[in-house]
Amino acid sequence: MAAETRTDETDFGEVSRLKDRVFESVTLAAALFGIVTLAVLLVYVTVDAVGWLDWQFLTSPPHPLAEEAGIFPALVGSIVLMVLIALVTFPLGVGAAIYLEEYASDGRLTRFIQLNIANLAGVPSVVYGLLGLGLFVQLLSFGYGTLLVAAFTVSLLILPIVIIAAQEAIRSVPDSLRQASYGMGATKRQTIRNVVLPRSLPGIMTGTILALGRAIGETAPLIMIGVPTTVFGVPNGLFAKFSAMPMQIYTWSSYPDTAFQYGVVSAGVVTLLVVLLSINSIAILIRNKYQTERS
């Protein structure tokens, strides 16, 4: 690949060396631009959250006075929602990936499904919100803004990502293992169950968990299915109204008082990012554990 050329690079005169150096600096600056900007913003928001992000904030319901405001219902709502989404997407995503990788022939239908999945991954999340509104709220009458509707809607949204990740993991299982299994007289089902799935499971889990990280930050679909502006208690059933952290942050972000702008909302943002970071760390831990095991 590109890396190989680096070693046998020619060292012709210094004529255009300067231009090369300048260009390298420019590309490096570009590569760092986004990261540095984000890092600065994160430092700002973390500094602003200091003094606001405390036990009281994590355990209280929202309140119009900044000192008494808390994120508890939204925090619980987000976690419950994520568990439900995992339960829906994991079996469906893995099932679809198994079909596409292990069963499907390389025909028209398969290519169509594949293209379709790639396209679904690019549909704006607000459109999935309309799907949830039209299908689950209006047609199936699951109630506007309920936990169940939100779980189904966001599940459909991240399903393509889960399928693609699971496919990659399954594809990375060497064919020699499958052939060995068949050689022992195993059927296709037995091979999938005993060889393919166990070996690709860490990859699948990593992909699913990363997709959940995307799910926990989604706001637009929740607004479209009518999740209430503010919820003061924790959900007590699948048909209960609930709130989620990004939803609460959206509500708070329109509060003009500086105590909210540079205090409560910052604390909410940091809470959301910490939960997101923990989810992603779990995914990375799983990946690293199995990567070391195999060496």
Binding site: E168, V173, V195, P198, R199, P202, I204, G207, Q291, R294
Partner: peptide, 12 residues
């Protein structure tokens, strides 16, 4: 992401 080919023993 899921670049983990060959390796650890399969569990049933």
């Amino acid at each position: 992401m899921s670049r983990d080919p060959s390796g650890w023993a399969p569990r049933s």
